[in-house]
Amino acid sequence: MNVIYQFTFILVIFCLTSFTTKDEETKLVAKKIVTHSKYQEVTIKKSTFGITPEGEKIDSYKLKNQNGMEVDIITYGGIITDLKVPNKKGISENVVIGFKTLEEYLQPNPYVGAIIGRYANRIANGKFSLDGKEYQLTLNRPPHSLHGGEKGFNRVVWKAVEVKSGKKASLRLSYLSKDLEEGYPGNLQVCVTYTLTNENQLEVLYEATTDKETIVNLTQHSYFNLSGDFSNTILEHEVVLQSDKIVSINENGIPTGEFEWVANTPFDFRTAKKIGKEIGVKNEQLERGNGYDHCWVLNNSERGKTIVAKAYDKVSGRLLEVTTDEPGIQLYTGNFLKGNLPMRTSGFYEHRTGFCFETQHFPDSPNQSNFPTTVLIPGKKYKTKTTFTFSVN
């Protein structure tokens, strides 16, 4: 009887031990799955950035992936305040111009990091006609209107919604631009969605609808410096633009209505060339833009799927590639940075310490019959996407 009892006792202990071991193994496997899932997840973290003089709370959202890429966006102006990406040594550094405080963003600045609208770029004399009616816009760059007027989308507070989906995380910003705001007709409901992926891509999706015929042209106005060191200029950056022509401008930066071939000019970036190589040569278009501040007419090869622009910094190894379904891209080389905007730490952003890749329709399109239309009518949706992809080389 004792033998049977001992055997039974041993059998029970064995079974309990086996059950516990399997349970622990199950827990370990589950833990690995959860850990792996967390490792793959792109996260969003919300914090308070400041309070406007009108008492509106401005939030900041940090989107972060598994590869050391982070992007910080505030609800004031939809501004990208920070964008950190790794260099060839794996060190993540900020690569966009930005300020430390909301108060600094509230001061006059050249659209640093902001969403631009209703109309990116210039409209001649701030006037255009729709359906036989002429509209007068705010002349914030007399005698012309620039980037949406005195209080464009870069100066409004956007509503934010977080959208999480594992390997992607999005921040969906929305704003209602009311009829005749800055002179533009129609109540325009705008949505801009920033999405960060684990492939080190920052996608920017623009959407809009209207209740009255209007014009729309949205873009993003971040100033990049891929070196991660803003005491350096961007003149050593190598740029490629898939474009055979530029939109020619007059002495006021307004399109002449003509396209100029880039071949045998300083505007030829069809193969990699340093920004600084020809920026100072004698050229009428360069003089009118005080450097590069022009819209390149993008070639039509599978627009939206092929890379239309690249920028590369040899020292850091960082490579930026841009895809877009827009017909143009404005390369702006920080020609009007004057050393009066404060850096995050110490010092100031000097001349040409940042460049912009502004994907968009052409400037002054409402007044240029041979340019692609920017008209939006009720019942139709404005929708366009630009993707910024970062890697090292």
Results as ranks from 00 to 15, higher is better:
Tyr349Thr: 00
Lys32Tyr: 14
Arg118Trp: 04
Gly68Glu: 05
Cys295Phe: 12
Glu236Gln: 13
Val112Glu: 07
Thr35Asn: 08
Leu28Tyr: 13
Ile4Gln: 13
Val71Gln: 12
Lys245Cys: 15
Lys57Ser: 10
Ile123Cys: 04
Thr214Phe: 05
Ala124Gly: 15
Glu251Tyr: 14
Lys314Gly: 09
Trp296Asp: 04
Ile97Arg: 04
Val163Trp: 06
Thr353Leu: 00
Gly90Phe: 03
Pro366Asp: 05
Gly148Val: 11
Gln107Cys: 08
Val190His: 01
Glu251Asp: 12
His147Trp: 08
Tyr105Ala: 05
Thr20Gly: 11
Thr8Glu: 09
Leu205Met: 11
Ser37His: 11
Asn187Met: 05
Leu218Lys: 12
His144Glu: 05
Gln66Asn: 13
Gly339Cys: 00
Glu182Lys: 01
Pro372Arg: 05
Leu180Ser: 13
Leu218Val: 04
Val297Glu: 10
Glu182Cys: 02
Tyr135Leu: 10
Val247Cys: 04
Gly354Ala: 00
Leu83Phe: 08
Lys168His: 13
Ser248Ile: 15
Val112Gly: 04
Asn2Arg: 13
Asn2Gly: 15
Asn370Gly: 09
Arg303Glu: 12
Ile329Gly: 04
Ile74Arg: 12
Lys164Ile: 06
Gly334Asp: 02
Ala114Thr: 11
Asp59Gln: 10
Phe7Ser: 13
Phe259Leu: 12
Lys381Tyr: 00
Asp23His: 14
Pro327Thr: 08
Leu298Val: 09
Leu16Gly: 05
Val315Pro: 09
Glu236Tyr: 09
Gln40Lys: 15
Gly166Arg: 09
Pro372Lys: 01
Tyr349Leu: 00
Val96Met: 00
Met69Val: 14
Ile377Asn: 01
Thr48Asp: 10
Ile79Thr: 12
Asn367Ile: 06
Lys151His: 08
Glu104Lys: 07
Leu146Trp: 06
Ser177Asn: 15
Thr101Arg: 12
Val315Asn: 11
Leu235His: 10
Asn290Glu: 10
Thr209Asn: 01
Leu226Ser: 05
Ser174Tyr: 09
Gly113Ser: 00
Arg303Ala: 13
Tyr39Asp: 13
Ile279Asp: 03
Asn340Trp: 04
Ser47Gly: 13
His221Leu: 10
Thr271Asn: 14
Glu134Trp: 02
Leu235Ser: 03
Val322Gly: 02
Val163Ala: 09
Lys385Val: 06
Glu350Met: 07
Asn250His: 11
Thr8Arg: 07
Leu146Cys: 01
Asn370Leu: 10
Val375Gly: 00
Arg270Glu: 00
Thr345Ile: 13
Lys277Cys: 02
Cys15Ala: 13
Ile275Pro: 01
Tyr5Pro: 06
Lys62Gln: 08
Thr209Met: 03
Ser248Val: 15
